[in-house]
């Protein structure tokens, strides 16, 4: 637990620092004194206030939210599939949600229908993984993972097809739904998604002891007294809703759900009770940092955030993997 608290406090401090940097980065230079004045409601001009409250702050909150959701969903999926390679984007939940959004765009839906459609399809993808992963009435982690990979490929292909067939969305829409972006995040989009996402995070957290047991394997978990079916249902539903909520806000950001739980597990332990909060804060750090980098590299039209998370996360992940001897 001591290691957990050290890394948790360090992650929180890093997130606070990155948040401050994120608020200061943008096309228009704004001093930190002005940012603080705007945040605390002291007299600054309306344009500055609008930039802070309507553009930069929602973008920061969206980054924190999506990072926390994706990393936590990754923790749940890796435990559930008993495979350190499972993450929301590999197991098809992200692609399912993106497909839902793409379909809603195709039918000319507004922001709300797009979000609902993303949520429904994300859950549907999770349900499909759940059903296809059952062999002789028992859930097989390996079959679920394979089913997830197939669903991911299928949904990804459909998203590509739909995006290219819609003129207005076109390539830009395709990039958003496959590589993610924090541009154009609004408080309205965030409100619904964050309510559901945070609710599911707590459901997952209170289920984390059961999730630890599932890591032993279904039979071993049952013999130790865990209600395996209930743990699996709660975890897969919570992970799917959290992923769909993140996808609604920022499209698919890959790698966060894979690399962050891995890194946190290497730094502390595989105990999901500590891994979930640490991964949530660390995931938020990775996404906020990636967003800062994407804006600094290309201030006018920021680089898709999924590109940055992968470029930053992969080398660091490989370094830790080599240092840790390749263990989970």
């Amino acid at each position: 637990m001591r290691r957990f608290w050290i890394f948790f406090i360090l992650s929180c401090a890093l997130l606070a620092f990155l948040s401050a940097v994120s608020l200061g980065v943008g096309l228009r230079e704004i001093s930190y004194a002005d940012i603080l004045s705007a945040l605390f409601g002291k007299g600054v001009d309306e344009t500055l206030r609008a930039i802070i409250f309507d553009i930069r702050l929602p973008r920061l909150v969206a980054g924190v939210f999506c990072g926390a959701m994706l990393a936590s969903a990754g923790v749940a999926m890796q435990a559930l599939f008993r495979n350190p390679l499972a993450d929301p984007s590999i197991t098809g939940v992200s692609s399912g949600a993106a497909l839902g959004a793409a379909l809603a765009i195709n039918f000319g839906g507004g922001a709300f229908p797009i979000q609902i459609s993303a949520l429904v399809f994300g859950l549907f993808a999770a349900f499909a993984i759940w059903r296809l992963g059952r062999i002789n009435g028992r859930l097989s982690a390996f079959s679920m993972l394979l089913a997830g990979i197939a669903i991911n490929a299928f949904c990804g292909a459909l998203v590509g097809f739909l995006m290219y067939s819609v003129r207005e969305a076109g390539v830009k829409g395709f990039i958003f739904w496959t590589l993610g972006s924090l541009e154009n995040c609004s408080w309205r989009e965030l409100a619904g998604a964050s309510f559901m996402g945070i609710l599911c995070w707590f459901a997952l957290f209170f289920n984390s002891r059961g999730l630890n047991m599932v890591m032993l394997g279904s039979d071993h978990a049952y013999l130790s007294g865990a209600n395996v079916k209930s743990v699996q249902r709660i975890s897969i539903c919570a992970a799917a809703v959290m992923t769909a909520c993140a996808v609604m806000v920022c499209g698919i950001i890959g790698f966060v759900g894979l690399v962050v739980p891995h890194i946190c597990r290497m730094l502390t332990s595989p105990d999901n009770r500590s891994l979930l909060p640490l991964s949530a804060v660390s995931g938020a750090c990775l996404v906020v940092f990636s967003d800062i980098v994407s804006r600094l590299v290309s201030p006018l039209d920021s680089v898709p955030i999924g590109v940055v998370t992968a470029l930053l996360g992969a080398p660091f992940f490989l370094y830790l993997l080599r240092r840790g001897g390749g263990n989970a």
Partner: peptide
């Protein structure tokens, strides 16, 4: 049981 399936780096 006969075979353990735990493959995470727990203490």
């Amino acid at each position: 049981m006969q075979d353990g399936e735990f493959n995470f780096d727990s203490s």
